[in-house]
């Protein structure tokens, strides 16, 4: 109950890897490391599910359910049964999901 971050949706199929090194380049948390002939998944627990590796893997060797982890949006969708809005970035400046009231009301559009 004190660590909800032990699991994530990142999956890597080494057989499909062509060692283009894109995943280790784009990952902001060093989850992948460039190996001799295949990329290596070295730090899976640090994955934040941003989806950059999946999007830039030309062979589809990586899958991850990416999304903006906005707690407000998730709670709102859980309460209303509406589809999860990505986040309130329409109104947002510095951070992705600073809590805003307008965000909640705007998501109803």
């Amino acid at each position: 109950m004190f660590n909800s971050y032990t699991e994530n949706t990142l999956e890597y199929d080494e057989k499909l890897c062509i060692n283009c090194r894109m995943c280790s380049t784009v990952c902001p948390h060093g989850v992948f490391s460039g190996g001799a002939d295949k990329a290596r998944l070295v730090n899976k627990k640090s994955c934040m599910e941003c989806g950059a590796c999946q999007l830039n893997c030309p062979t589809g060797a990586i899958t991850v359910e990416s999304g903006v982890g906005c707690a407000y949006a998730m709670m709102w969708s859980a309460l209303t049964g509406k589809k999860e809005v990505t986040c309130g970035c329409d109104d947002d400046a510095g951070s992705c999901c600073a809590p805003t009231t307008t965000q909640l009301f705007k998501s109803e559009r």
């Binding site: 909800s4 971050y5 699991e7 994530n8 949706t9 902001p28 948390h29 640090s46 994955c47 934040m48 599910e49 359910e65 990416s66 999304g67 903006v68 982890g69 906005c70 707690a71 407000y72 998730m74 986040c87 951070s95 992705c96 999901c97 600073a98 809590p99």
Partner: peptide, 17 residues
């Protein structure tokens, strides 16, 4: 709610939280 502003929390983790 601060999870949305960090640079490292995953969707799966936030949902579980």
């Amino acid at each position: 709610n601060f999870t949305g502003s960090t640079t490292f929390t995953s969707v799966t983790g936030v949902r579980r939280e």
